[in-house]
Each structure stands twice: as structure tokens, then as C-alpha cells.
């Protein structure tokens, strides 16, 4: 445990080490640490900012989506209305067409009935004349008794 010159040598080397450390070691390391801290802080701030921006964008998207939905609903409603109209219109057309066909069919039938009646009447007339001629023996002339026959025919 002798105290000797080693103490002074140690003190000198200590000061040299400290000065070297202060000049060449400490500043670059501490600077890079501080810089990295700043960069991380910047990065975090940027991340926060962009997440905020994303939220804004999401809100915008939501409103746009709502608009689109409303528009779509409107379009669907219009289409439905239009299709209803078309269906109604075609129903009307069909109904009119059906009525027209029915009417024309009725008219035709009536015409047929009239025709049939007419021919029937004529046949009945001639049959009656024939019958009468056979009974009366040729006294009945179709021409001379035409009026009578027509009356008869009209009564049928």
C-alpha cells in the first residue's frame, strides 16, 4: 500500500482519457442518439397524422357510400315505378285488345246467326212452298204467292 508516483501517472492518464472521450467518443454517440430520438418522434407524429388522415378518408368514404346507396335506392324505386307503369299499360292494352277481339267475335257470331237464320228462313219458305204445292197440286205459284210466303217467312 505504498503511495507513490503511480498516483500521478494514473491521474494524468485519467485526464487524457476523459478529454479524449469528451472530444471524440461522447459527442458522435450522443448526437446519433438524439437524432434517432428526433427521427422516431417525427415518425410517430407522421404515423399519427396519417392515421388521422385515414380516419378523415374513412368518413368521406362513408358519406360517399351513403350517397351512393341513396342514389341506388332512388334508381331502384324509379325503375320499379316505371315497370309498374309498363305492366299497367300492357295490362290496359291487353284488356282493350281482348275487348276488341271479343267484340269482333261477338259481331261475327251475330252475323253468322243472322245469316243462318236468313238461310233457314229461305229454306223453310221453299220447303213450305214445296209442301203446299204438293198438297194443293200445283196451284201454288211461287211467284204469285211470294207475298204470302214472305210474310210466313217473316213470322218464323
Amino acid at each position: 500500500m505504498n503511495i507513490n508516483l503511480t498516483l500521478i501517472g494514473q491521474a494524468i492518464s485519467f485526464f487524457i482519457f476523459v478529454l479524449f472521450c469528451m472530444k471524440f467518443v461522447w459527442p458522435p454517440i450522443i448526437n446519433s442518439l438524439r437524432e434517432r430520438q428526433a427521427r422516431i418522434a417525427d415518425g410517430l407524429a407522421a404515423a399519427e397524422q396519417s392515421s388521422q388522415r385515414r380516419e378523415e378518408a374513412e368518413a368521406e368514404i362513408a358519406t360517399m357510400l351513403e350517397d351512393a346507396k341513396a342514389q341506388a335506392a332512388e334508381i331502384v324505386a324509379q325503375a320499379q315505378k316505371r315497370s309498374n307503369e309498363i305492366v299497367e299499360a300492357s295490362k290496359d292494352t291487353a284488356r282493350t285488345e281482348a275487348d276488341r277481339i271479343k267484340n269482333s267475335a261477338t259481331a261475327e257470331i251475330e252475323q253468322e246467326v243472322v245469316n243462318a237464320r236468313e238461310s233457314l228462313r229461305k229454306q223453310v219458305g221453299s220447303i213450305a212452298v214445296d209442301g203446299a204445292r204438293k198438297i194443293l197440286g200445283g196451284e201454288v205459284n211461287a211467284e204469285s204467292h211470294a207475298k204470302v210466303i214472305d210474310d210466313l217467312v217473316g213470322q218464323i
Binding site: 503511480t6 494514473q10 471524440f24 467518443v25 434517432r36
Partner: peptide, 24 residues
């Protein structure tokens, strides 16, 4: 003195090496 100076020099060499290549 030899060991303390050697170790001190080793410390400064190692840390200087890191300091030279220090990057943020």
C-alpha cells in the same frame, strides 16, 4: 499503470470505433 492504461485505451478504442460509425 500498464493494465489501467491498456484497459483505458481498449475502452476508448472500442467506443471510438462505434462513434465513428454512429448513425441515427
Amino acid at each position: 499503470l500498464f493494465w489501467s492504461v491498456t484497459l483505458g485505451a481498449f475502452f476508448l478504442w472500442l467506443f471510438k470505433k462505434a462513434a465513428d460509425k454512429a448513425t441515427s
